[in-house]
Design a protein around this nucleic acid. Structure first.
Lengths: 294, 294
DNA sequence: GGTAATTGATGCAGTTATGGTATTGATGTG
DNA sequence: CACATCAATACCATAACTGCATCAATTACC
């Protein structure tokens, strides 16, 4: 049975007049008569009583009218819904991101995306940089937001932010009041960083800053999470170099001081080019041009 | 778009294999390929990704699958529902009845009908005998349960119960303790009855009882409702003759005493023969053979 | 590495379904 | 009694669908 038949039935049930119903359906009366008759045959139920001068719904017709109307509405909805999903306006987008991204580019990206596609449900997953590419390649997530990685062969990448490192010092540190310092002034300090295996790019940027002033940082503590680093610094356990956006973190006992020189650290979006999730294309289309903040 | 297309889509979405889906749909593979393709064209959306060795749903396809499944279920439901309604197993039946019927035949009829057609919603309306036929003829109700009336030309009638009258006496009345009395013994009493205009048949039966003993009842009070009659008798304001089934009414101060002779009073079901409500036929089919209780 | 098997798409022919025009049949109306 | 209205039917042309045979691409296997 055709959707068209349902539509014909509903219109006829409203007009109770074959001629007028046919006109509203942009067809002539005879085919409508046959359609209704075919519908009745298919259901095995008489839907209309045809009297000499009037057409009225039977009890079964009255019952079917309500259900048929709802069916038509639901059908229209299903069609529109599928189309929206194909355009990426509906659906699900799974995003993995590092803690650094959460403090820098993520909030803005999510806000922009939400504005354009409010009906896409976002599944967010905070992860360590080293796990991010595996999640993307396995299809676990659609988007990854992290530092640019050397070994990201089968992934596309778009840079979003390029920023400097800054120093984090305990509040009572002699350099804490300065407007800016040079990394070289920290040559004798104890460093808190995170392990090179977790985020090689960041680790390398920190090393590069120090090498620029001809010293190797004295790494006393290594921890996985940036937040923890800042917390340890606040407790006076050392100093550290972190991306500038981390300075949004207001933490008593920790002071962020700009560096006179630092190698820039980038943040960007990764995705699998053959990923067909339409919401992914939507997401990529709202990425703003890269902000260079160094 | 055809319901068949939706069914094809759902089966294919489950099997993800054109050949097997076609087999399950009792058709060959080429038409299925074309049906899906036609569905995709109609929606303007690609529902499946055809890879070399596999077929997978797109995001839009996944979305459409859920809606399409629900649509099919709702469609099946709508069809079955219309069929049930046509068979009278669903729908609405409006029943008007007198108070006498409420005390005698109505409970049993409703119980039997409920058992056979639990999904028919019953609209009950208590009414005075004189209004019942007008309600039936105007189509206000489908079924009327009342006394047989002389002027019920265009209505069909089926008798359900034939019972005797009995006397209602105040508890302190000298005859109240008797196992049975004759109406003649009430010749000198004050009668409480209801007006002949409200229920001519009942009024006549009472008159007939009295005439059988050569007296005219001394009617002191007239009231519309049987219940009120019994209440007035209980307060000692007179005696009355009422259908035996009223004796189910347990009321302190009123005693029901069988009569040695009484003209039988009948109760029955009225309906309009041209009423096409399928539930009406169901109702008529469950009317038990007439019980003669005199 | 070449052949067979698998799988979905396509070409073609026959059948079915659908829509339009003209007409009929039944029933009210002036 | 002629006429108007309204749904059903007859008939024809076209569109849609089905099945069969086949193709093209990929994969499995010896």
């Amino acid at each position: 049975m055709n959707i068209k038949h349902l539509r014909s039935f509903v219109v006829l049930a409203e007009t109770l007049h074959f001629g007028q119903a046919a006109k509203r359906l942009h067809m002539t009366q005879p085919p409508l008569s046959r359609q209704i008759s075919a519908l009745e045959d298919a259901l095995g139920v008489t839907l209309f009583e045809r009297h000499s001068r009037s057409v009225v719904l039977t009890a079964a017709g009255e019952n079917f009218r309500h259900n048929a109307r709802r069916l038509l509405e639901d059908y229209e909805f299903a069609v529109r819904s599928a189309q929206s999903t194909a355009r990426g306006e509906m659906g699900e987008l799974r995003i993995a991101f590092t803690m650094c991204a959460a403090w820098s580019v993520l909030p803005d990206l999510l806000a922009r995306f939400r504005e354009h596609c409010p009906d896409v449900s976002l599944k967010l997953k905070e992860t360590l940089p080293k796990d991010l590419h595996a999640d993307l390649l396995s299809g676990e997530v659609d988007v990854g937001i992290s530092f640019p990685a050397a070994a990201a062969d089968r992934l596309s990448y778009q840079e979003v932010l390029r920023e400097s490192l800054c120093a984090v010092l305990p509040a009572q540190h002699p350099l804490a009041a300065r407007a800016a310092i040079s990394a070289g002034e920290l040559a004798e300090e104890a460093f808190v960083t995170f392990p090179g295996s977790t985020a090689p790019e960041l680790h390398e940027a920190v090393s590069d800053c120090c090498l620029h002033y001809q010293f190797e940082p004295d790494i006393r503590l290594e921890t996985n999470l940036q937040q923890t680093i800042v917390n340890l610094v606040a407790k006076g356990l050392g100093v550290s170099l972190v991306p500038e956006s981390m300075s949004r973190m207001q933490l008593e006992g920790a002071v962020f001081v700009p560096l006179e020189y630092s190698r820039p650290v980038a943040q960007g979006v990764y995705w699998q080019p053959q990923n067909m999730n339409p919401s992914l294309q939507r997401f990529l289309s709202i990425i703003p041009p890269c902000v260079t903040d160094c």
